[in-house]
Nucleic acid binder design. Structure first.
Length: 461
RNA sequence: GGUGCGGUGGCGGAGAGGCUACGCACCGGCCUGCAAAGCCGAGUACACCGGUUCGAAUCCGGUCCGCACCUCCA
C-alpha cells in the first residue's frame, strides 16, 4: 500500500517515501502559549495527530516532534498586561493546551521541545549563518539576508519584487531587503534575554523551529506540518535558515522532504479575530460538546479545505457520534483490536489517499449499515469498525453521557415523576402522561420509553 | 497589485469524462397510546458563457463570485 501525501513544496500529491523507513520523522509547528487554544490550533493538532496515526499503520517507528513557543513578543505583552511573570503565562497555557488536546484525543508528541530550552542551539546556528555571510548585523540585530539564499520563495511561490507593490510591508530601515528577517534581537531590561555574541537578547520567531527540528530529528526529516498561514513567512524562512547552514543553493528538500499544510478555520464565514470577537476556544466548546464531537467536526471535511466552524457542524457531528455509539453499544467487547492490524480495506485506502477523511467516513457509515443488517454477527466487520475508529481517534465511549451533575434530591424527584407517569400510562390517562413528559423536558430531562421500561437522560448528547 | 485555494442538492461534504458517494435536515410509510430511537422509501446538484467529445459536474478557454496569505497568526 502506498501513502499519498499532498506536498505544498511541489504543489502535487506525492507518493510518500521516507528518508529512512525504520525511522520516520515528523515535525509540526506548535502553539505560542499565551492564550487558550482555539479551533484553528485544534484543527492543526487533530489533523497532524491523524497523520501520525495513519503513518503508524505503515511504519513501525514514527517520531513526532511538536514544539511549544514560550518566548515571543505576544507573551511578553500578555505578561505585562496581567502583571505576572512570563513563566506563569507560558506554563499555565502550555498545560491548558495539552489538556484541551487530550480531550480531543490528540496524543502528545514524542518530544515537545520548548524554545527557551534551545537557546544555545539557536545561537550556534546564528553564528554559523553570520560566519558564512547568510546573515548580517545591523542596529544590534542579527538579520538574515534573503538575497543570499538561492531558493528563497519556492514554498510560497513568491518572487521578492512582485509582492511589494500594494502590499502592507513596512520596511525597517536597518534591513538591506524588505523581506530580510530577524534572527536575534536585543532585549530591554524588563524583557527576557540571554547572553550572546551580540549582547543580551532573544531569538527571532523563525530560528527556533530550525534549531529544534535539527536537534530533535536531524535533517533532512520527512514531513513538516503547520497551518497554511505559516507557509509565508515562517516556513519560507525556516527553509532559508536551515538550508543556508549547508550551502547557499541547498535544495529545500534537504531540510524537510514533504510540507504538509492544513486549511484555515473560519467562524460563521468570517476570519477569527480578536477585533471581531469570534475566536472559538476549545476550552469553551468542551463545556457544550464532547471531545469526540469536536474531533469529528474537525475531520468532517478534507484537511486542506477551508473549514467554516458553526453550531450546525457540531450538532451534525453530535448526531453522528450518537448514532455510532448506539450501534457500538451492542458490540462492545466482541473483538480485541489491540494487536490486530489489517490495512487493506476501503477505509484505510481513503486515508492513504492524502487523508481523505470524508471518504473514509462514508466507508465507515456503510459498515455501520451492514453491521445493523447482519445483527452484529460479523466479527470481521466489528473488527474493521473498531480499528477505523481507533485510527480516526474517536473514542466514542467517552462520549456517553452520565447523569453525574444531578443531585440525589433531583434524582428522587425525577424518578417519582416517571413513576407517576407510568401509572398514568397504565390507566390510559395519556394527557397526564404527556404533561409529565413536557414538564421534565423543561428541566432538560428526556425520556425514552423502551421495552425494558422508561429511561431518562439529562441534556442528552 | 502579487500568490494560493475554492464555487456540487435545504445544509455539510467527497468524487472527477459515461455507473450521479456519504452525513444532517425535510417528506411519505412501518413501528409507538404519543414521542424518541430504529427500519423501509422518495426527492432535489454540480456558479455562468462558449468549446472539445457519441457523452462533461469532471477536460479546454473566458466571465463572475468567495476565502486565505503578502503584518502577528494554526
Amino acid at each position: 500500500m502506498t501513502f499519498l501525501i499532498y506536498d505544498s513544496l511541489t504543489k502535487k500529491k506525492q507518493q510518500f517515501v521516507p528518508v529512512d523507513k525504520n525511522n520516520v520523522r515528523v515535525y509540526a509547528c506548535g502553539p505560542t502559549v499565551y492564550n487558550y487554544a482555539h479551533v484553528g490550533n485544534a484543527r492543526m493538532s487533530v489533523v497532524t495527530d491523524l497523520l501520525i496515526r495513519v503513518l503508524k499503520t505503515i511504519y513501525k517507528n514514527v517520531k513526532f516532534v511538536s514544539n511549544i513557543t514560550d518566548v515571543d513578543d505576544k507573551i511578553i505583552e500578555a505578561a505585562k498586561k496581567e502583571k505576572v511573570k512570563i513563566e506563569d503565562i507560558t506554563s499555565k497555557f502550555e498545560k491548558i493546551y495539552n489538556q484541551d488536546m487530550l480531550e480531543l484525543n490528540v496524543r502528545l508528541p514524542d518530544i515537545q521541545p520548548k524554545a527557551t530550552e534551545y537557546i544555545k542551539e539557536m545561537i550556534i546556528m546564528i553564528e554559523k549563518l553570520v560566519q558564512n555571510q547568510s546573515a548580517y548585523i545591523s542596529n544590534d540585530n542579527v538579520i538574515f539576508n534573503v538575497k543570499k539564499y538561492k531558493h528563497y520563495g519556492v514554498l510560497s511561490r513568491r518572487t521578492k519584487d512582485e509582492q511589494i507593490a500594494g502590499s502592507r510591508i513596512e520596511v525597517a530601515d536597518y534591513k538591506k531587503n524588505p523581506e530580510d528577517f530577524v534572527l536575534w534581537k536585543p532585549s530591554k531590561e524588563d524583557e527576557p534575554g540571554w547572553e550572546s555574541p551580540w549582547g543580551r537578547g532573544r531569538p527571532g520567531w523563525h530560528i527556533e523551529c530550525s534549531a529544534m527540528s535539527e536537534k530533535c530529528l536531524k535533517t533532512p526529516f520527512d514531513i513538516h506540518c503547520g497551518g497554511v498561514d505559516l507557509t509565508f513567512p515562517h516556513h519560507e524562512n525556516e527553509i532559508a535558515q536551515s538550508c543556508s547552514l549547508v550551502a547557499n543553493d541547498c535544495e529545500p528538500s534537504e531540510f524537510s522532504k514533504y510540507w504538509f499544510h492544513n486549511g484555515f478555520v473560519t467562524s460563521n464565514g468570517e476570519k477569527m479575530s480578536k477585533s471581531l470577537g469570534n475566536i472559538k476556544l476549545v476550552n469553551d466548546m468542551l463545556k457544550e460538546y464532547s471531545g469526540p464531537v469536536i474531533r469529528l467536526s474537525l475531520l468532517s471535511s478534507h484537511y486542506r479545505q477551508p473549514l467554516d466552524w458553526s453550531k450546525k457542524i457540531l450538532d451534525q457531528s453530535k448526531k453522528n457520534i450518537l448514532r455510532f455509539s448506539k450501534v457500538l453499544k451492542d458490540i462492545e467487547n466482541k473483538v480485541d483490536t489491540n494487536n490486530l492490524n489489517q490495512n487493506d480495506n476501503d477505509f484505510i485506502r481513503a486515508l492513504y489517499d492524502d487523508l481523505n477523511t470524508p471518504k473514509a467516513l462514508a466507508v465507515l457509515n456503510g459498515w455501520f449499515d451492514d453491521l445493523k443488517k447482519n445483527s452484529s454477527s460479523n466479527e470481521n466487520l466489528v473488527f474493521l469498525i473498531k480499528q477505523a475508529l481507533q485510527i480516526f481517534g474517536l473514542d466514542i465511549k467517552r462520549n456517553q453521557s452520565t447523569n453525574t451533575n444531578i443531585t440525589e434530591e433531583e434524582k428522587i424527584m425525577i424518578e417519582k415523576m416517571i413513576q407517576e407517569r407510568e401509572i398514568a400510562r397504565k390507566n390510559k390517562d395519556f394527557r397526564k402522561a404527556d404533561e409529565l413528559r413536557e414538564k421534565l423536558k423543561e428541566m432538560r430531562i428526556f425520556l425514552d420509553d423502551t421495552s425494558g421500561g422508561t429511561i431518562w437522560k439529562k441534556n442528552e448528547s
